[in-house]
Design a protein around this nucleic acid. Structure first.
Length: 497
RNA sequence: GUCCCCAUCGUCCAGCGGUCAGGACGCGGCCCUUUCAAGGCCGAGACUCGGGUUCGAUUCCCGAUGGGGACGCCA
């Protein structure tokens, strides 16, 4: 029988990277065989679930490349794939459990339950449901219903039994039913509760492997019991260790970016995030860590994922992202980086010329920068150039004024240095004219041209300036002063000083 | 409190009874170089502790300690 897995997020916010990793591992398991990957939306909490959240999660999943075969947007033979649309299935299953005497109405109010919990905790006892409504007689149930009370439905957990959860990453884990309270399976408003809905859905959707976070492990025995009561064989489980922050607390907002959307907005590439997430808790084997998602799928083996929680390491993600930025097609990076140039005002309209220009200056930044959003700052000297600061820095150089004057003289007589060869030719001329070489010749040029003491290589930076200066005003790029304009200004100011 | 899970460099992984305990990120140094990065090379850096089992434990078993999770009409 072929593998069927699912990713079942609750649309109550952004897609968290920990969940994205769960989705990835499910995807790898499905794609590694000829399995099926199902997307199911767990929106039984009407209060917190939103359609907007569902949309952004789907969007983020697609951005990551984690495509699914069945889901709310693509349909499939086991739909609907939104729990809010599956009420009839839950009703039917609940009826069966009631008929079999495995579920009973519970009239306890949230306030009573809360008081019970507080009391148990205070007494040092496990805060499990007291079982108060478990043996209500039929008359009382009928009377209270008639009186307008709306009971929830609880599953009756059998006493004194061992339940074994077969887990691919942890092996067999057993629990005593004595520590498990009767879970609510249907709320008083008729909607299904998590522990019930997952079982009904995973069962009916014929899910073979449930790969999810470790936080669900303690809930699993309840679910196994419900599978049994429904007369179904439970799927095989695989509980993934959690993703932690640097302080070993679960990764959360205070650690910085935690959602896929945030990483996306900060200029990480999807393949980089996917590659990194795949390395968290699993190893593709061998020494190579840069591995495509397809290759990961070929090598993936759930039973070989790590057992312990992993700390999310932003530095390593950055290293991987740097790698993929260098490997990617310049036009693609340019297109992805364009919004950051627009944000900084360096690009004012995303015209074809602007895109071409951005693509052409990428070599100045890619490789020295971790993220797309850092690219504009690396090339800011092209647009924001301050004559005063440039002159001041040039003045600090031993032969700064002489060098700058020589460069200016050379440029006066030449075509703009729009490519590396022209720049090199000009270099020879400037060296001869100034009788300077090495740092003494180049550093003054750098500070005069960029108003910065460091930055991209000059044989890349100079042509970038010249090509930018030649752009028409309608190109959508902020004005870029030419090398000659910059040098003239600096010569004028250092001359006065 | 009760139950469950986990434990190799700072971090992520490899190891599956005998290894100089390997790789990656990060860190330090050197090289390259007209600067900063990038890149190349080198280096420092770990088996939580205590009992067993065994000729031999990082590896198997038990316990302790530490970390995490669950115990909700959230998922």
């Amino acid at each position: 029988m072929s593998i069927r897995v699912r990713f079942a997020p609750s649309p109550t916010g952004q897609l968290h990277v920990g969940n994205a990793r769960t989705a990835l591992f499910n995807w790898l398991l499905a794609r590694g065989s000829d399995g099926t990957f199902v997307l199911r939306i767990e929106d039984t909490d009407a209060e917190r679930s939103t359609r907007e959240s569902e949309r952004t999660m789907i969007d983020d999943l697609r951005w990551l490349g984690l495509t699914w075969d069945e889901g709310p947007d693509v349909g499939g033979p086991h739909g609907p794939y939104r729990q809010s649309e599956r009420q009839v299935h839950y009703d039917a299953a609940a009826e069966r459990l009631v008929a079999a005497g495995r579920a009973y109405p519970c009239f306890c109010t949230p306030a009573m339950l809360d008081a019970d919990r507080q009391a148990a905790l205070a007494a040092g006892l496990p805060p499990k449901y007291s079982g108060r409504c478990r043996d209500l007689d039929a008359d009382e149930i009928a009377r209270r219903r008639a009186a307008g009370e709306r009971p929830a439905l609880r599953f009756a957990v059998p006493a004194n039994r061992e339940v074994v959860v077969h887990d691919l990453v942890r092996g067999d884990v057993s629990f005593s039913t004595d520590v498990i309270g009767d879970p609510i399976i249907v709320r008083s408003d008729g909607s299904p509760a998590y522990n019930f809905a997952v079982v009904v859905d995973d069962g009916e959707m014929e899910i073979s492997h449930v790969v999810r976070g470790e936080d669900h492990l303690s809930n699993t025995p309840r679910q196994v019991l419900i599978y049994e009561a429904l007369g179904r064989t439970p799927p095989v489980f695989a509980h993934l260790a959690l993703v932690l922050g640097p302080d070993h607390a679960p990764l959360s907002k205070r650690h910085g970016a935690t959602s896929v959307a945030e990483f996306r907005a900060r200029g990480y590439l999807p393949e980089a995030l996917v590659n990194y997430l795949g390395l968290l808790g699993w190893s593709p084997g061998g020494d190579e860590e840069i591995v495509s998602i397809e290759e990961m799928a070929r090598r993936f083996d759930v039973s070989r994922v790590g057992h312990s929680a992993a700390v999310f390491d932003v530095d390593k993600l950055a290293w991987i992202n740097r790698h993929y930025m260098k490997a990617a097609e310049p036009v693609r990076i340019a297109r992805a980086a364009l919004p950051f140039f627009e944000r900084d005002g360096q690009v004012r309209a995303s015209t074809d010329e602007a895109l071409d220009y951005v693509a052409s200056i990428l070599p100045l930044a890619v490789g020295s920068v971790d993220r797309l959003d850092e690219i504009p700052a690396r090339v800011a000297f092209l647009f924001a150039w301050e004559a005063g600061r440039a002159a001041a820095l040039a003045g600090e150089e031993p032969d700064g004024a002489r060098a700058v004057a020589a460069w200016a003289d050379v440029l006066e007589t030449r075509e703009p240095l729009t490519d590396r060869e022209r720049f090199r030719a000009a270099t020879a001329a400037a060296r001869e004219r100034s009788r300077l070489k090495g740092r003494a010749l180049f550093h003054p040029l750098r500070v005069a041209l960029t108003a910065e003491a460091s930055g991209p290589e000059l044989d890349l930076a100079v042509p970038a300036i010249e090509r930018g200066a030649a752009l028409a005003p309608g190109a959508g790029v902020a004005p870029i002063p030419s090398c000659l304009e910059r040098l003239r200004a600096v010569v004028g100011m250092t001359g006065k000083a």
